[in-house]
Design a protein around this nucleic acid. Structure first.
Ligand SMILES: [Mn+2]
Ligand SMILES: [Mn+2]
Ligand SMILES: [Zn+2]
Ligand SMILES: [Zn+2]
Lengths: 148, 148
DNA sequence: CTCCAAATGCAAATGTTTTGCATTTGCATT
DNA sequence: AATGCAAATGCAAAACATTTGCATTTGGAG
């Protein structure tokens, strides 16, 4: 199994040939709790307050190794130019980003299976995945903007 | 009209309240010729060889003002972490990226109109657009990989 | 418990994008 | 055509995000 679901951290790390360290546990826990993809810096700051000091480069290195082991995927939303990271789940999601307040919200249900097949036929690419971001104004920002 | 189609550069710049400068003309021409989104650096280097010297910061500033005037959109493909820029056309396209050789290819036909409506209903966002990138192995890379 | 490779912290290096400021240029006005 | 001024530009430095080198610490196998 590639994905994070249904395993305790230690078991997971061992199965991937990774040492079970405090920092890796903390980063993984944060990613599990997160509803949206996190930047390295946000992870770093959250851990700093909760806990002992982790170094920002360690955060980057942990994320790197999690990606290499297929536990995490990069999910750089193009609104800011910071890379974001989220757990590699069985079921992928897409993100809805408010172009005004930058709030991010996950959207499940992927409408692209059939489309991928069509593109595969048309282009002869062997398609492995996709990334979809949807932009718009969130309900709150719509209200604020209407008032002007 | 917001988009670049069917106008000469000067007319376009004037209609946007921009001065008609040599550098802006060059950057716009390059973007018109490009089949895929370009990085600021690529634009800078292409102009350097063709032509007199432009400064990289001027390239960034021109792209910024083009974005502000809706002539250009950012299109940072997440494979590399450099921001890319492309003309804001009437008909948007999506990109197919080879995860092996990083070649980028445009895909037209957008399958998401109905989906956007559904998400709008579900989330009460006012949706203004989306970005879709598709990943896979290009025909050439498939052949190369099969040989191993 | 010992030992060693793997993980970490810290500081410095890199690579990209932005900014400050002095100079130049486009263009509206004489 | 010459003038004046705001907008555009070049250059160097700053600001950010991310990566790397190296000395030290730590997890876990034996
Ligand atoms: Mn999907
Ligand atoms: Mn589309
Ligand atoms: Zn909002
Ligand atoms: Zn390829």
């Amino acid at each position: 199994m590639n994905c994070v679901d249904n395993k305790n951290n230690k078991e997971l790390f061992v199965s991937k040939g990774l040492k079970n360290t405090k920092n890796r546990n903390h980063v993984l826990e944060l990613l599990k709790e997160a509803e949206v993809p996190l930047t390295a810096e946000v992870i770093y700051l959250k851990l700093k307050v909760l806990d002992t000091n982790i170094s920002l480069s360690t955060v980057y290195r942990i994320l790197e190794v999690f990606i290499a082991k297929d536990l995490v995927v990069k999910s750089s939303l193009s609104e800011d130019n910071k890379t974001r990271y989220e757990l590699h789940k069985d079921e992928h999601s897409h993100h809805l980003v408010c172009v005004n307040c930058k709030k991010i919200q996950a959207v499940f249900h992927c409408p692209l299976e059939a489309y991928e097949k069509a593109v595969e036929k048309e282009t002869e690419f062997n398609i492995t995945g996709h990334k979809l971001e949807i932009y718009g104004y969130c309900p709150e920002c719509q209200r604020i903007i209407e008032k002007h």
